[in-house]
């Protein structure tokens, strides 16, 4: 049977299923794929024309990479890119370790009620807006009324000007991120581990394996595929950063910038008082393209090591 014939047969047989998928395909094609065309705006000197957005888009002048220049022209470009990539990788790896640990700990609890309570408590921060988190952090770190400074002074230490010293902020931001994201992120691992074949563990117990040996020899190896998929997906966002975390939590204080300036905060400050839509588009495109390349590279590397663990 030729390929063509086979395709036709398959097609005819699956018509009902294809019809069911059609609305979704049309939806994604119309709302997700066609608008991609609009990314050319990042390479244009956008002028507004009477005949509507698409006409304006088509007739605007091409300017090449001019709209990207502002990202690299600043003296801080090095710091901004270093911060963005550094924090992303740190949060990705550290977050993953903590999430797995929390998932493992939760699994060891036998009382279902306490598990529910713990789970709810650690997932809760995920639903808080960064603006509110910024208030929480301020309550702890405020120069005079802050909880931590009061504790330090009560113990006879000097108080610390948290909002003046960039050197503390990598730690503060990491703690906030872990506090906020660990509970929610651990759900994925919890669900995966719950799905593992229990007979493996029973067999191991009979052979006299300790909890630790069970974890290192059964759970972690079985988790490998999901870990590598999460890593590949996580890498795609390496040039992105949570705007709220880097803008709201450090209160946009210039002294902290060496530790807190990332691409989204820079773009926001650069364009906040303007009606420019082109430069943010350029910054967003750069982030997406970099993410896309990283996904492909990471996936290729993973596939070279072990094809089963790759995403595609």
């Amino acid at each position: 049977m030729t390929k063509k014939k086979k395709f036709k047969e398959n097609f005819l047989r699956n018509i009902p299923l294809l019809l069911m998928a059609l609305p979704g395909i049309v939806y994604i094609f119309v709302l997700r794929y066609i608008p991609i065309y609009g990314i050319i705006i990042a390479f244009k000197d956008f002028r507004i024309h009477k005949n509507g957005f698409l006409y304006s888009l088509m007739t605007s002048k091409w300017v090449g990479f001019k709209n990207f220049e502002f990202l690299f022209k600043t003296q801080d470009a090095k710091i901004i890119f270093r911060n963005t990539i550094g924090y992303s990788l740190l949060f990705l790896f550290l977050g993953m370790i903590f999430q797995i640990i929390v998932a493992l700990l939760l699994l060891e609890m036998t009382n279902r009620r306490t598990v529910k309570v713990y789970q709810t408590l650690i997932i809760f921060p995920h639903f808080l807006s960064m603006v509110i988190v910024a208030f929480f952090v301020y309550v702890f770190l405020a120069p005079n009324e802050g909880v931590i400074n009061n504790m330090l002074m009560a113990m006879g230490f000097q108080k610390i000007e948290w909002y003046m010293e960039p050197k503390y902020w990598p730690y503060i931001l990491t703690i906030v991120t872990l506090w906020k994201g660990t509970g929610y992120g651990s759900i994925m691992y919890l669900a995966t581990i719950t799905g593992f074949d229990q007979e493996l563990y029973e067999a191991a117990v009979i052979d006299g394996a300790t909890k630790w040996q069970q974890t290192t020899n059964i759970t972690l190896p079985l988790l490998k595929p999901i870990i590598s998929i999460m890593l590949i997906l996580g890498l795609s966002n390496v040039l992105g950063a949570d705007f709220g975390l880097f803008y709201q939590v450090p209160r946009n204080i210039p002294m902290l910038n060496p530790a807190t300036n990332v691409i989204p905060t820079f773009v926001y400050r650069a364009l906040m008082n303007m009606g420019n839509i082109v430069m943010p588009a350029a910054a967003g495109l750069l982030q997406s393209v970099a993410g896309f390349i990283l996904i492909i590279v990471a996936n290729t590397v993973v596939r070279m090591i072990n094809p089963e663990n790759s995403l595609f």
């Binding site: 022209k73 210039p254 650069a270």
Partner: peptide, 16 residues
């Protein structure tokens, strides 16, 4: 381009 970069610097310092 220059003014956009400066805008970012201005928004960093002016307020404080």
């Amino acid at each position: 381009t220059e003014l956009t970069v400066m805008n970012s610097i201005i928004n960093e310092y002016e307020r404080y």
